[in-house]
């Protein structure tokens, strides 16, 4: 798998244009690649490197720092089970064990049918709704073993349409239409905003 397809390359350019320096778009573009391929392929990293003007090694250096980028294919559904303290206190580890035995895999691996990957993860910010997990980063709160089994059954049966395949993060993207852009230029081309100087001088009236 691969470089960006044409549509995604266009989105990539739109994303890059939002930053004062192209390199800032590296992480969003890694997400975009993962959305396209389900994981972050080598060719995609090389393509990102070209688009933002850095080396492939730099893209990979950045990408491998972050938990979410998978450099090899993973299951269609990545299930992140939180075992951190708040979840641990109310059954996070037991949920993980239950998931492992139900799916017959250990955390960090993928079921043979390629549907599920389980991960033992750190706090997902749902501490008061523990034990919690995420499926492709969609929250599941207060997950009992039974609730987990239902979740799996539903996913297998295609009954959870709100959960996209692994890689897709926001179903809604930010879009800034050209006529609404205020001022996105490299830092070295920026000066004091005119409104700031004027309004401080006049005590708030617009100039």
């Amino acid at each position: 798998m691969s470089r960006f397809n044409e549509a995604n390359e266009a989105i990539a350019h739109e994303i890059i244009a939002r930053y004062p320096r192209p390199k800032s778009a590296t992480i969003p573009l890694c997400h975009l690649a993962q959305e396209q391929d389900g994981y972050l392929a080598e060719d995609a990293m090389a393509h990102i490197a070209e688009l933002v003007g850095i080396t492939s090694a730099e893209v990979m250096g950045t990408a491998t720092f972050y938990e979410m980028f998978k450099l090899a294919p993973v299951g269609r559904y990545v299930i992140n089970i939180c075992t951190n303290i708040s979840c641990q206190l109310v059954g996070g580890e037991e949920l993980l064990e239950h998931a492992e035995s139900t799916l017959g895999i250990t955390s960090g691996s993928t079921t043979a049918d390629g549907l599920f990957t389980i991960e033992d993860v750190e706090c997902v910010a749902a501490c008061t709704e523990a034990p919690a997990c995420q499926v492709n980063y969609r929250y599941q709160h207060r997950v009992t073993p039974e609730a987990f089994d239902t979740l799996i059954a539903d996913l297998r049966a295609g009954r959870r349409p709100e959960i996209p395949d692994h890689g897709t993060l926001g179903a809604t993207r930010q879009h800034i239409s050209e006529d609404r852009v205020a001022n996105i230029t490299p830092p070295e081309q920026q000066v004091e905003p005119a409104w700031y100087a004027a309004r401080n001088a006049t005590g708030g009236e617009s100039a």
């Binding site: 080598e42 080396t55 090694a57 893209v59 250096g61 491998t64 720092f65 972050y66």
Partner: peptide
């Protein structure tokens, strides 16, 4: 062309 890869105690130097 060489860079830190991965994180924490798994950090290593490597090439693409």
């Amino acid at each position: 062309l060489i860079h830190f890869m991965h994180r924490g105690s798994n950090t290593q130097v490597n090439t693409f």
